[in-house]
Design a protein around this nucleic acid. Structure first.
Lengths: 201, 201
DNA sequence: AAAAAATATTGACACAGTGTCATATTCTAT
DNA sequence: ATAGAATATGACACTGTGTCAATATTTTTT
């Protein structure tokens, strides 16, 4: 635990070297083509060492993604108490825009992450947790505005919430893949406008 | 070419045996865990033979999926010429419902397909083509109703179309994964209601 | 009906990557 | 200074892939 514990220090250093090498290899090769052997070679570490510190490729990526995922959780936790339809639109636009802007900012690692979601159930579960967090939050917000009389009460708030998040999520992946034509702002503005007009009274 | 050509007949039979075995293995193991060796063994065919008929696992799955994909294309091609907001809602509901019902009907193979999209760029491209077909079609329909004065003209029809398709697609995958709570009908009804109310005048 | 040509099948092989484990090294505490 | 705990190592066994030269089968030619 202490800094003078050289053994532990070396261990931390090895771990660090592996993480850095893994990041480089992931970014260069993508998740599937990346091999743990490449990472080990790049980290200048014995083969078995990698397996002492990490369970495999997937585990390495999860550790590398932890910061980014933390930030997703933070966005999901922003609270939401609008007093009018107009105010709702403003807040929702800001959230959607923040969400999509994040995709742009973290594009490189998110690209790797997207590939990994398709392959590793460990990583796919991580993303599912983030998604459910968002949906739960949105769902709650919709229910709140429905009780308030701001939103159409005849709609199932859970279904609405999922639908809304799904649009956002798919645009997120488009942006990550660099396939989007329009600017993030216009996308956020347009989808928010439809959603708010469709849901609120 | 003729039926009495025994050589060709045998070849077709071998191909058939491989496809059937592949389907069984894919359904049982999922795309990633499925190995071409298992399929070969199950088909009772020499190892190299599989590579004569198919390029590999991905190729086999693409051939197996061709029917299903054809049906997606058909849904995408249904025409759309509403005279009123109400009529639009009816047509759009039917399309969404058809699209999601298809997911339910073909769940097993679609599950395999979903996994494969994450791994194989060949298959991912196939799905992208289906998606773009849908989006192009929806985009066209939105533009048409905007010119008609039925839909809000200030919104970018391409962005709207993508957003709407994305909600549908993500619900499709939820249904494929059996993760949906609500019935397909209620999902279709709810997302259509928000979309139509949000877009049409 | 036998030889030659065309087509189809086969499995041994080389290769690439993974994860494990017995052993070696380094460090700490006594 | 040495026992023993923590850490690192790479050879090895294993799984799966794709190729190819050899072989088998069917059709065509003579």
């Amino acid at each position: 635990m202490t800094v003078e514990d050289k053994r532990h220090l070396r261990s931390i250093l090895t771990r660090q070297k592996l993480l850095e090498a893994a990041k480089e290899v992931f970014l260069q090769e993508g998740f599937q083509k990346a091999t743990i052997s490449q990472m080990i070679k790049k980290a200048k570490v014995g083969y078995g060492t990698a397996y002492v510190h990490f369970e495999g490729k997937e585990d390495l990526l999860i550790v590398l993604m932890e910061d980014v995922m933390e930030r997703f959780y933070e966005i999901a936790e922003i609270s939401f108490l609008p007093k009018s339809k107009h105010e709702a639109e403003e807040i929702i636009y800001k959230q959607a825009n923040g969400f999509l802007t994040m995709a742009e900012a973290e594009r490189d690692m998110m690209q790797v992450f997207e590939q990994a979601i398709g392959v590793s159930s460990l990583i796919s579960d991580k993303w599912k947790m983030i998604r459910e967090k968002f949906i739960q939050r949105i769902s709650q917000d919709v229910a709140f505005t429905q009780q308030n009389g701001l939103a159409r009460a005849e709609l199932n708030h859970e279904i609405v919430a999922r639908g809304w998040f799904f649009t956002n999520e798919m645009y997120l992946w488009e942006i990550v893949r660099n396939e989007h034509q329009a600017s993030v702002e216009e996308v956020a503005k347009t989808i928010t406008s439809i959603y708010v007009t469709g849901l609120y009274i």
